Simulated scan of single mutants.
Amino acid sequence: MTDMVERARTSRVLDVPATVAALGSIASFVLRLAGAAGLDKGATYRLRLAVDELATNVVMHGYRGGDGRITVRGRSGPGGVQIVIEDSAPPFDPVEGRLPPAPGVPPQDRRIGGLGIHLALTSVDEFGYAHRDGRNISTLTVKAEGTDRCPPRP
């Protein structure tokens, strides 16, 4: 467990329907936590990008437009922000679904899908996935500037 979590000042939970309309509420939730942690613009952008991509994938591909819910738990503290996204859609490990960029291959010839997940996972300092009790659980951490940031993932 990171020091940031142990020293968390703010812990919040958001439970929303898995709809496109709810993505704005998730983004606002993330921005509030980033502000509470004092993240700079770059770190805030990286966190929002990653959460938005993963939540959008849950809505569009996980539940496929059917009924479902997304629970977003967030902790912020002096070291950064940790977000946990939970859903009961079919199991999906974002690391397995990632499509790294294909240098030298024209965009029109690349496989569709997976690049957004790659961008999301390389935007955060730490990422973890588990499937437990019928739920997908993705944990994302973005550390504040001046903390011991991890290098970007390949």
Results as ranks from 00 to 15, higher is better:
residue 92 F to G: 00
residue 35 G to T: 09
residue 118 H to P: 10
residue 93 D to R: 03
residue 129 Y to W: 10
residue 95 V to K: 09
residue 154 P to W: 05
residue 73 R to A: 10
residue 113 G to N: 07
residue 60 M to C: 12
residue 87 D to Q: 07
residue 108 Q to Y: 10
residue 13 V to W: 14
residue 47 L to M: 13
residue 22 A to Q: 03
residue 13 V to T: 15
residue 21 A to P: 04
residue 140 L to Y: 00
residue 100 P to D: 05
residue 7 R to P: 02
residue 65 G to V: 05
residue 8 A to F: 04
residue 27 A to Q: 09
residue 62 G to T: 01
residue 2 T to H: 04
residue 24 G to C: 11
residue 86 E to F: 08
residue 93 D to M: 02
residue 138 S to A: 05
residue 154 P to R: 05
residue 120 A to L: 00
residue 41 K to M: 11
residue 120 A to I: 02
residue 47 L to D: 05
residue 118 H to M: 12
residue 105 V to K: 07
residue 12 R to Y: 02
residue 141 T to I: 05
residue 151 P to N: 06
residue 120 A to Y: 02
residue 22 A to F: 02
residue 124 V to F: 05
residue 111 R to D: 11
residue 146 G to H: 05
residue 28 S to D: 06
residue 1 M to L: 14
residue 95 V to C: 09
residue 150 C to K: 15
residue 123 S to E: 12
residue 112 I to F: 12
residue 8 A to I: 01
residue 14 L to P: 07
residue 45 Y to H: 15
residue 18 A to E: 06
residue 63 Y to C: 13
residue 34 A to N: 14
residue 97 G to V: 02
residue 25 S to E: 15
residue 106 P to E: 11
residue 46 R to W: 03
residue 93 D to A: 09
residue 22 A to I: 06
residue 71 T to N: 10
residue 13 V to Y: 12
residue 112 I to A: 12
residue 102 A to N: 05
residue 70 I to S: 01
residue 105 V to E: 03
residue 56 T to F: 13
residue 5 V to D: 03
residue 19 T to I: 05
residue 21 A to E: 14
residue 80 G to T: 04
residue 54 L to N: 04
residue 102 A to D: 02
residue 92 F to N: 07
residue 34 A to M: 06
residue 63 Y to D: 00
